[in-house]
């Protein structure tokens, strides 16, 4: 009963998210994010139907659908790259390189692992998902480190998107690691914690994406390119000055 309630609430919030996005025209702005939400909603609906009519097939369908949403979840990271880092080509380049490496790792895992290990037992699938989630977790961490380091501003929509997804990834990663370590005894807790955390993330997204809040961009009044060149000339001169002075200090 409890499980049905959590899963049903999740689908209801997903539907609300999509309806609200259509009303305030957020879908074209955050295309990858809403593709992810749609894929999750369709996946949840399929799984609920299977659980109701053919419970024996649930395990068989669960993991492929979970992996499909894991890949579409990468869209959220693409949204962050597109919206938060786009005005900062330097930081974006940095993030794209690390993002491509992470995405390559996900694809390699998803395509090569089933061929190498055709008889994937539920245990190994758990470990497989845990590994993929850790790649995503590392990528979000790297992205946030970059945002903090370069002092890049982040708007309400994007902050909610990152926070909601990050929270979900954190919980699922910890749950999967514990489940992989503790074995089947952790399954009961895990089957409750995972959908509940996702519901929390959905609520965060619903609040953060209630209306469109564009991401803050650097002030257009400042002629960055011109100012920057002047600044570089000055800084070079300052660097030369500091170097000379420090060289003398070192010899003193």
């Amino acid at each position: 009963m409890w499980r049905w309630l959590v899963e049903g609430a999740g689908i209801a919030v997903e539907l609300s998210l999509l309806v609200r996005a259509l009303r305030v025209r957020l879908v074209p702005r955050y295309y990858f994010f809403y593709t992810y939400i749609t894929s999750v909603m369709i996946g949840s609906a399929i799984l609920m139907t299977i659980l109701l009519r053919m419970p024996a097939l649930y395990q068989k369908w669960y993991w492929p659908l979970q992996l499909a949403t894991l890949v579409t979840g990468y869209g959220i990271l693409l949204e962050i790259l597109n919206h938060v880092l786009a005005p900062y080509p330097g930081a974006e380049r940095f993030a794209r390189i690390s993002g491509l490496v992470a995405f390559g790792a996900i694809l390699c895992f998803a395509m090569i692992a089933p061929r190498v290990i055709p008889q994937l037992s539920p245990g190994t699938v758990i470990e497989f998902e845990r590994d993929l989630r850790s790649v995503q977790a590392l990528f979000i961490f790297g992205l946030l480190a970059l945002i903090f380091y370069y002092g890049i501003p982040i708007g309400k929509n994007m902050k909610g998107m990152v926070f909601g997804y990050g929270l979900y990834i954190f919980t699922i990663l910890v749950s999967l690691a514990l489940r992989s370590f503790a074995g089947a005894s952790f399954t009961t807790i895990w089957s409750v914690v995972q959908p509940m955390t996702f519901d929390v993330s959905l609520v965060i997204w619903l609040v953060a994406l209630w209306s469109y809040c564009p991401n803050p961009v650097p002030s257009p009044t400042i002629h960055l390119e011109e100012d920057y060149e002047a600044l570089v000339t000055r800084t070079k001169s300052v660097i030369g000055h500091i170097r000379t002075y420090l060289g003398k200090a070192a010899r003193a």
Binding site: Y88, R130, S134, A137, L138, I140, F141, L144, A145, F148, Y150, G151, I152, P153, I154, K159, V162, F163, G166, L167, I169, F170, L173, V174, L176, A177, P216, P218, S219, T221, I222
Partner: peptide, 27 residues
């Protein structure tokens, strides 16, 4: 190892939540 990755992610989310909304890279 995996719990450490989780802790790193959690710490960064914590700082994100506490972060000042004032754009640091403003003019």
């Amino acid at each position: 190892f995996f719990l450490s990755i989780g802790a790193l992610l959690f710490a960064s989310l914590f700082f994100l939540a506490r972060r000042n909304s004032r754009p640091e890279g403003s003019s």
